[in-house]
């Protein structure tokens, strides 16, 4: 059972990383702000500049 829970946690963590939720959380921690439309806009400004430069494979 504990293995199943661990596996589920890892899958969820992977999805949160792939879908940038983890990156947003780190941004909030780093800038010590609460989640809000303004904070998310600031996160996207910082994040998109780097993310859209990364190629995705064919």
């Amino acid at each position: 059972m504990s293995r199943f829970v661990t596996a589920a946690r890892i899958v969820l963590a992977t999805l949160r990383e792939i879908f940038d939720e983890a990156a947003y959380e780190r941004f909030l921690r780093r800038t010590q702000t609460a989640s809000s439309p303004g904070a998310y806009a600031a996160f996207r400004r910082e994040f998109d500049e780097a993310k859209t430069r990364r190629p995705k494979c064919c």
């Binding site: 890892i10 963590a13 992977t14 990383e17 792939i18 990156a23 941004f27 910082e46 780097a50």
Partner: peptide
Amino acid sequence: NGRDFLVTNKWVVFGHHFAAIAGPG
């Protein structure tokens, strides 16, 4: 630095890497 460089669980990196390399090819 909490942004580009970040110690990450290997399974999470695996999923992230696979999602980036898997395209229509």
